[in-house]
Simulated scan of single mutants.
Amino acid sequence: MSDALEAMGRISGVSEVENPAESGTVSKDGRTTVAEVTFATKEADDVPDGTLDAVRAAGDGAEQAGLKAVYGGEPFETSHPPVGPGELVGLGVALVILVITFGSLLAAGLPLLTAVLGIADTMAAVMGLATWFDVSDNAPTLAIMLGLAVGVDYALFIVSRHRTQLADGTPVRESVARATATAGSAVVFAGATVLIALAGLSVAGVPLLTSMGLTSAGAVAVAVVTAVTLLPALLAMAGHRLVPEARKKRRRPWASGTAALAWACAGSRASCATPCAT
């Protein structure tokens, strides 16, 4: 192990290798120890891949003596983009379900559109704040998951209320205002509850939980603002195209027959007494 650590210290790009015997990072049974390797670069993402490969090669050389080296820390972690194939598949499934439920591609697409735009705003803000604050690698992923969930959910409240009112004959502008005032107020209350719960994770005093909680709370706040500002504008632009086809008023098929029967009875009371009674 000493030979492996000395070899790591001679690698270009490594500024210091800690001696486990001096730092006291040896387990009581003497079978496990931790050695900290300090790289010359300040940022973990800036460590060259060649330097990391050389450190692994030096550590693997100790395996010949029956030791096993495990590498950890930010330089050795593999970063994954917050949005991957799984999220895209989830959006596609959600779109199919909403189209089947609403029977309209426009009505199904509006909640997804506002949710995606809200997530884009949140990620832009997180990237900007990461310049000054430490943001966990898992925080953006959690924020995207919660932002999409509540973004679609909150938009559905308003869109469903708006379409119901349009089916009842309410004008578009009045329906948008009513839906935002009624369902929108419920969205604000629900979003505030979730926001407070997520922000409460910072009380634990764990930096990881604080970063994840505050980032997710920001995503929920953006989803609420988007639902009560951008969504009503899109509903107004859509106009009567959001009227549900299944709820359009139809004439009852027996209405004309009733009118004809009443006219016939009025013309000849005696001859149609039985049909009139029926």
Rank of each mutant, 00 (worst) to 15 (best):
T32V: 12
D60L: 13
R31Y: 03
A40D: 10
G92T: 05
E36Q: 09
E77R: 05
T33C: 12
A69D: 03
R31I: 11
A54T: 04
G30R: 04
F76Q: 04
S27R: 03
A40L: 13
E36A: 14
E36C: 02
F76D: 04
H80I: 14
Q64D: 11
D53Y: 02
L52F: 05
E63C: 09
I97S: 07
V96I: 14
G73A: 03
V96M: 12
R56L: 12
G90R: 00
L95E: 08
S23V: 09
L88Q: 05
S23M: 11
D49G: 15
A35N: 07
Y71F: 15
H80L: 15
T51S: 12
D60F: 10
V26Q: 07
T32W: 08
K28T: 11
Q64K: 10
L88R: 05
D45C: 06
D60T: 06
V93R: 00
R56M: 14
G50V: 06
L91D: 00
F39D: 06
T32R: 15
D60I: 01
V34D: 11
A44I: 03
A65I: 02
G86V: 12
S23G: 05
S23H: 08
G73C: 10
V55L: 12
A62F: 06
A58C: 13
T33W: 09
V83Y: 03
G30K: 08
G50N: 08
